[in-house]
Design a protein around this nucleic acid. Structure first.
Lengths: 193, 193, 193, 193
DNA sequence: AATGAATGAGGCTTCATTCAT
DNA sequence: TATGAATGAAGCCTCATTCAT
């Protein structure tokens, strides 16, 4: 087995553990135990506990983004693309309990501060996919002539928040209802006519 | 000086320290040093490090909410109230660097899950203020006849997100522009006609 | 209320608390709370936590010894006295849950090392009562001509052990049975004929 | 050096320290220093301070019991066995200052309450050795037809008490004399004729 | 590539005790 | 007499990280 394979194995196990306990409560030894190796050997593959975490998360995010991207290419119209993006993100997360848990544990994963964001690159790539849809909508006159960059960021943020909200252990509040109401409100504000 | 005063003094100092270093990195001793007393004496006033933190945060949130509440009473129309709420929140935070820092350090402060939220009460009170405005807008026919509860929660979430986004150490992105674009988009979706 | 009364009140409360939690786990504050005063005020009446404990225990032991002494004076023959001593000790303890608990928590209370024993005096007085009975038995020829001092100490020790064993939360073993068997064994070895 | 060896080294050192200062006064750091390692490394071998203590004590008790067991097998008659047991226990302890000290520091080590006894197993094994002798004596008609279980427990208790008494830092009292008087008294009550 | 062993640094908490009022 | 407030000292334990093998 190559070194890369072993790493993947580690990140997979780390995902499970971090998702369950969060960064702080997770011990390097916990991860090691999950892979079936010893604590010290982990340091052969990663530099740090932090390093371990960041690689783990980045990997998971990237897989997610790639999945959405693939789905979006199947859509034709702008409206479809928008919906596909939203829907397939939700679908994807539905089958990824660990990723969901992770996002709940550490919502800052989505922070977009370029300077210190540990996940800037992958986040940015994801946002660009959204931007492209909006740009297209504006160009085609389907959407109001909004400032594309600002609105992209705005919607991306809402979108992220939605995901988190939706998957946080049931607030007791009707998440689905909020989802529908919110979405139509947004659409009403975005679409022309 | 009464015991309550001393407590306030402690929470004030704690706010400073927690804002700077975050919960984890902050040492009880740090706080003690900031007040000018010994570590052990802190335990005369609070039960725990956790207890210290929660009282500190709750206090700060409550002061904030009260300030907004006072401002809102000065407004007459629904639209004014809405704007005042948004604006004075921002204004307030502009002068409260520490609270801002705190919110960045621990965004979960705003989590609204009734079961585990440590700050549920004060958060809830704040949201109810918003709900009241929306209800009024709907009643007066100024807003679309939306589902008040869902939209309240939706807008409150966005509002919180906005605050955090805006005050996160410079994103590099144009926060204000996003703010304006987003707000008008929302309004367009919310207001009738 | 005189200072002495207040002290008695303190020792009474202390007995309750020490009996329940043992010396180590008992906090000066626990005792204070039980009396209804503050920690610091305790130090007006006693020098130390240790001092507090020792006065508390000594008092209880002395009351016990006095009760037995009174009972023994009612007996006539040596055998009667012996039995009365054993029996009334048990009877007394039956109604003194706290003292019992205390003895279980700190069996060293009965240690007889003259040098460091904190309760030497009262223990010694108790043992002397037993010695007197044995001496009388030997003098009257009812008992074997044993070495009075040694046997006294021996029996006193067994006697103490018995008390503790008996009142330790049921070992699961048949304490009563052991009591009878042991006592008759002892008597067989002690009495002439 | 294997892990087991290292552990033995630790327990040996721990025995020394616990014997000297008692459980409470002994610091994990004290033990570590005695072995020549750091505090934290101790936690590599044991779970707790408590764990450290219990393993230390159990080991010492077990070594003791095994030594007596070996001696007893050399004896032929019941009386001899009884005497050997008593005598070799004393002999063993004479050369084990630390174990002696330990027993004095924490007499509860010998408590036989099945539920809470931390050393029940090893204690029980020891008592069973005594029981066997008594059973044999009764079977052979050398002893009175006593209730074996009760008397075993009774004698075991006395025996333990004796050990403690004898080895408590000089009582000032003539321990040996008491030993002889007590033993003959017991024998007189136990042996037929 | 892997491991056992070791370490250092640090943090939380408890409490007996004191002191000014 | 009584109290609130303050303190110092101490102890347990966790963990990320390193190193020799």
């Amino acid at each position: 087995m190559g070194k890369t394979d072993k790493k993947q194995q580690i990140f997979q196990a780390a995902l499970t553990v971090f998702a369950r306990y969060g960064y702080r409560k997770t011990t390097v030894e916990d991860v090691a135990a999950a892979v079936g190796m010893t604590k010290s050997n982990i340091y052969f593959y990663v530099k740090n506990k932090r390093d371990l975490y960041e690689r783990t998360v980045s990997g998971a995010l990237e897989r997610w983004r790639a999945a959405i991207g693939a789905e979006m290419e199947t859509a034709k119209t702008v409206r479809e693309k928008f919906m596909v993006a939203a829907r397939s993100s939700f679908e994807y997360l539905k089958n990824q309990e660990e990723l969901r848990a992770l996002l709940i544990q550490d919502p800052e994963i989505f922070t977009l501060s370029r300077t210190e964001d540990r996940f800037f690159e992958v986040n940015h790539r994801a946002m660009m996919m959204l931007r492209q849809v909006i740009q297209q909508g504006v160009d085609e006159g389907v959407f109001h002539p909004v400032d594309v960059d600002s609105v992209t960021e705005f919607l991306f943020s809402i979108y992220i928040m939605f995901l988190i909200k939706t998957y946080v252990k049931s607030d007791g509040s009707a998440g689905d209802r909020m989802y529908e109401e919110g979405l139509s409100l947004i659409f009403r504000g975005l679409c022309r006519q």
